[in-house]
Nucleic acid binder design. Structure first.
Lengths: 342, 342
DNA sequence: TTGTACGCGTTATCAC
DNA sequence: GTGATAACGCGTACAA
């Protein structure tokens, strides 16, 4: 059942219009280089045959795919969703298609996916964070594939990046925490291994503590994957400590949401008994109860700017310049002064 | 600066190993069809040249891309994230790569993206929901691209689908609501136009009401995009009604989260004064306060099964069979009996 | 302005 | 077991 004829080619269109394949190709790619009359005929044929150019053939011929690849650590939560959506929107405006895949925070998987994307002819690659084997960068260099790092800004890194200063942002938040009067600060961080954002956020807190003359060794730190349940578990462990922390700073909003959920389960009221902070300001942050005091990251802006810069690199208009996106602390209800000294 | 030599080809490898391109190709694709000794030499050359096959060329030759495309309505929130991640995981296990793009709930954009994906040689397509111009299905038919619908199960539809019965699921939830004693029920639905899931969910509620002998005309229904803020707005409008509904059922958890947030802002306590329900059971549902009574959708299971079925179709092992995924109501705290009659 | 003919990198079909 | 060689569909010098 169904017609057995396969997709029409440039040749089919040419025959139908009584012209050569070259003319058809020109009609499609540079219409001004062909006379009105023939163009009409050709377009007619294109329409009636419902011709769609074969992508692989075009890539072969022109050695460009108008495809940008992005490898993100996970699609499982909303951390990267908004920024990536904006990235894609801008890319489309510029005539590029986005190819996404996720590495599940596994460097080996990421390496694999980078190879796949390059083999598929991606004209450029978006990577998250700088922490990566140098071998990978060499590979990209060899294949002449421009790449850009996002979600992290490091002007001194070898790769250009469009992102924000994770350390500085978290440091600022920590200052607010200190200013509120907290001294017994605990951290729930994401896994720092192979994750420069997580590392920088921890470093930012430590920096703020040092500036205040506080010993950083004393502060409890738990590393755990960015999952609600993990955040909840970690929070429970921290609450069992003696002395109990008066504030739990979290590596991102997902962990903070987990902490909040656990606090409720344990009948610990936030922020009256314990304060909690997040990072990212994803939608979640405004919805949980109490709403999270967190670091606002302009994900959309970052996504669009990253797209613009990467396209510029791909088109040879830029050698890769880094762009710093400004973040700011957004104050909601999960942070308050500590309970009066016991 | 940088070496100017471009990526090595099969030919380069062949020369380096002193064999023909055919042999190199065989080494890579069916290693058993070549003798150990030569294979060693070839692999050595592959290694040292860091050869990566050119994808476009392979696609041209073999007329298969081992790529599956998926067009989802949005990447902006978590509705599709988990299912899609599972879809991708299974795809990878089967040796396929996923290409995602989002249509922003715009039929025109979706049409565009389908064409793009097909032109890129996608071996199969995953679509969300059945509501779509017949022209699109004809196009896919012409191009011999198998496609599968997900997030919606409709055995009678022309397209095979791996999903759940949105109507039945919502109907069951509505029965619970009725059983709790509610009679003044309001709905915040997603935009139903072009969205069969949203339509089915509304229909499910209406069916439950009818079964109870209640007039469906009387029940307030607001349609609004699936966004937190929109859910909040709609909730506010419903709360201004007289008589005020005793329960607000929402088209999904995102809308419900918005409703909850607004309830809190208005100092309306849930579920004591008003009950709220969701749909999907995304992570959000367990985190908001009070936790949402909602319909649990096994997104991971759906994603994996969709991948398996679509791959089977692409490989000619299936003509497309529909799979129904079972959902169930999960009871948390946002639904309670209505306040005692005034 | 339009047509001819070749190349892009791979796989598959033959011979050898 | 291995090597020529012909596709695959498109873009583009180059020629007309």
């Amino acid at each position: 059942m169904g017609k057995n004829r396969s997709a029409p080619t440039l040749n089919d269109v040419a025959k139908a219009a009584g012209v050569s394949t070259a003319t058809v190709s020109r009609c499609l790619n540079s219409p001004d280089r062909v006379i009105e009359a023939t163009r009409q005929r050709v377009m007619q044929a294109v329409e009636s045959l419902r011709y769609t150019p074969n992508f692989a053939a075009r890539v072969m011929a022109v050695k460009r795919s108008f495809t940008i690849g992005a490898i993100i650590p996970t699609m499982d939560n909303a951390i990267f969703a908004r920024g990536l959506q904006a990235f894609q929107d801008q890319l489309r405006e510029d005539g590029y298609t986005l190819l996404v895949s996720s590495s599940a925070y596994d460097p080996e998987a990421e390496r694999e996916q980078i190879r796949t994307l390059v083999a598929r002819g991606a004209d450029g690659l978006l990577l998250i964070g700088h922490a990566r084997e140098p071998e990978i960068y060499e590979y990209l260099e060899r294949h002449q594939v421009p790449s850009l790092v996002a979600w992290s800004f490091e002007p001194d890194a070898t790769k250009p990046s469009v992102g924000f200063n994770n350390s500085e942002a978290m440091c600022e938040l920590a200052r607010r925490v200190l200013a509120a009067g907290h001294r017994r600060i605990a951290l729930i961080s994401g896994i720092t291994k192979g994750n420069d954002r997580a590392q920088a956020r921890v470093a930012g807190i430590q920096q703020a503590l040092l500036a205040e003359g506080l010993a950083i060794k004393k502060f409890p730190l738990i590393e755990t994957p960015y999952e609600i349940d993990k955040g909840a578990e970690a929070f429970a462990r921290l609450m069992a400590l003696d002395p109990r922390p008066t504030v739990v700073m979290c590596g991102n909003d997902v962990l903070a949401a987990g902490a909040l959920r656990e606090a409720q389960r344990l009948n610990i009221s936030v922020p009256e008994q314990v304060s909690v902070t997040g990072f990212d300001d994803i939608e979640l942050a405004g919805i949980v109860h109490p709403a999270l005091t967190t670091v606002h990251v302009p994900h959309r802006e970052m996504g669009r700017k990253a797209a613009r810069e990467l396209v510029a690199m791909v088109e040879g208009r830029s050698l890769g310049k880094s762009v710093c996106i400004n973040t700011h602390v957004v104050t909601r209800h999960s942070l308050a002064p500590p309970p009066a000294a016991e």
